[in-house]
Amino acid sequence: MSLGAVNTGLTGARALQAAGIGVLLILPFLGGSDYFMHILIQVLIWAFIYTSWALMGRLGLVSLGHGAFMGIGAYTVVLLWNFLGITPWLGIPIGVVLAVLLALVIGFPCFRFRIVGHYFALVTLALGEVVRLTIIALRDHTGGSLGLTPNRFGDGTSWYALQFADKEYFYYIALAVWLAGLGIWVLVDRSMMRYALIAVGEDEGAAASLGIRVTVQKLRITALSAALTALGGGLYAQYLTYVNPSIVSGVTVSLHIVFAVIVGGMFTAFGPTVGALFTITLSEILRISFGAQIIGLDLSIYGLLLILFIIFLPKGILGSLQDLAAKRAREAKAD
């Protein structure tokens, strides 16, 4: 492959990205139904949350407790709005700060004392469950497992309250946040932090001996991931105008996040987004074809797919496709 080919390849990818963003920008004007917009917004918000998880997941920090951060983000914004009248513009940042604090409190002992792999996964799993239980236990304010609806402000469309009757507003907000998420991914991907954390993932002792501050680096990526997840949670609560412990917190949500990322592929920027597209489309198709009488069918298929993916395609859909493309290119070159 000549240098010129590499260049055209790069410009090709750039052009494709620009075209993709252009299509996404004009999408609401193409006259899609409300249902279509709803699916798109869901995909964007979840893709953002999945990307946030994958920021640390791909570096070997597999958290099974991101439902905790999402729940904090979602509940903080709704509680502050309902009880203190604080606008989501402040509520979401407060939720993000709380999630970061929690991430640091849990992360510090984990990383300082080298709790990795299984231990880390189990500790975070328990964390997610405890946040869910705390939300339920505070039922006087949170409504327990019944959930909570943010108070309506005026006629239901207000930038101050971050409530919109039309889906277009949320579509653009979700699109902006999703793009920002991808941007952060790219920044982290190019930073020294990534290389430091890859070294840490390979051999913690060796990385430390090279002068990498293992605990600090891990805490930074964990705090970033928690912050973005809480932001996604807050946004999701504003969009649905409803929160309950089982849709924004707990083990099931945490495992959903992990599942979608693995299916999409956690080692590439668009992998989590592919995961969001795939899982949401799948569950919508199943819901439409079989209706509500078969509760559990979509999750049964999810679970089976997750097992099959881990056994046969551990790099996920996008990662495996890229491997395949790379292999093709190598074979073409060899010919």
């Binding site: 070997g60 597999v62 599942f259 999750l299 089976l304 997750l306 881990i310 551990p314």
Partner: peptide, 18 residues
Amino acid sequence: PINQLLATGGLLFFLQAF
């Protein structure tokens, strides 16, 4: 090892939903 843990996570989903 983490893959094995996640595979049984898939099993959790499956058994619960099933």
